[in-house]
C-alpha cells in the first residue's frame, strides 16, 4: 500500500507544481524534508530512549506483570466467551498493558499469541469470533496513556510546553475506548439475542 501512497504523493505533488510553477520549491522541499527527518529523529532518540529505559525497569521489576494481573476482572466483562484462567486472557492483558505504556515491541507478539489462542476456541476458523472482534476493536481504539513520540515531535518544533497534550489526549483516548466497547456490546446484543 505504501508503495502507491508514497509514489502517488510525490507524483501528484510534482504534477501540481508543474501547473503552479513551484518546481524550485519542490526541489528545496525534498532536500529540506530529508534533513528534517534526521534532526527529528535525533530529538526523538533522547526522549524515546529515556522512556524505553524507564519501561525496562517496570518490566524487570515485575510491575508490568502485576498490572496485567490486575486487569483480569475487567477482562472477564469484555470477553464473556473465553473460559476463566484460559491462556488467551493472559496474552490479552499483556497486550493491553503493553499498549497502555506504549511498548509496541512487547504488545504485538502478545497480541498475536492472544489471537492464536482465541482461534483455538473459535468454531468457524475463517470467521472472526466474538472475542476476536472485541479484542481487535478494543486494541484499535487507542490505549496509550503517553505518546512519547508526539512529545518528541512537539519538542523538535519548539513547543513551549510539549507535554500539555497528555491530559486532553488521555480524555480523548478514554472516550474512544469506551465508544469501542459500547459498539461491540450493542452489536452483540443485537446479533446474539
Amino acid at each position: 500500500m505504501l508503495n502507491y501512497l508514497w509514489g502517488g504523493m510525490i507524483l501528484i505533488g510534482i504534477a501540481v507544481a508543474a501547473f503552479t510553477g513551484k518546481m524550485p520549491d519542490v526541489t528545496n522541499a525534498a532536500i529540506d524534508s530529508s534533513k528534517e527527518a534526521v534532526t527529528t529523529c535525533i530529538t526523538m532518540t533522547g526522549i524515546l530512549s529515556m522512556w524505553t529505559g524507564l519501561m525496562k525497569i517496570a518490566e524487570t521489576s515485575g510491575l508490568i506483570k502485576i498490572l496485567s494481573k490486575k486487569m483480569a476482572p475487567f477482562l472477564k466483562f469484555l470477553f464473556l466467551q473465553i473460559p476463566k484462567n484460559h491462556k488467551a486472557l493472559d496474552y490479552i492483558s499483556t497486550n493491553i498493558i503493553a499498549n497502555i505504556f506504549g511498548l509496541g515491541w512487547a504488545a504485538t507478539p502478545a497480541g498475536i499469541n492472544a489471537m492464536e489462542e482465541m482461534q483455538k476456541l473459535n468454531h468457524n476458523k475463517k470467521y472472526a469470533s466474538r472475542s476476536m472482534c472485541m479484542f481487535m476493536i478494543f486494541n484499535m481504539s487507542s490505549l496509550q496513556i503517553i505518546c512519547v513520540n508526539l512529545i518528541a515531535y512537539r519538542t523538535q518544533y519548539n513547543s513551549a510546553n510539549p507535554s500539555e497534550i497528555i491530559g486532553p489526549g488521555l480524555f480523548a483516548t478514554f472516550v474512544s475506548t469506551v465508544a469501542g466497547i459500547l459498539f461491540v456490546k450493542i452489536v452483540e446484543r443485537w446479533k446474539y439475542k
Binding site: 475463517k126 476476536m132 481487535m136 475506548t177 459498539f183
Partner: peptide
C-alpha cells in the same frame, strides 16, 4: 497471523471508536 478472512464487524467498530476519539 491466524488466517481469518471474515473480520465481521471489526472494521466498523474500529472506525466508530476512532471517530469518537
Amino acid at each position: 497471523s491466524v488466517k481469518i478472512t471474515k473480520t465481521r464487524y471489526t472494521l466498523h467498530g474500529a472506525i466508530f471508536a476512532n471517530i469518537a476519539g
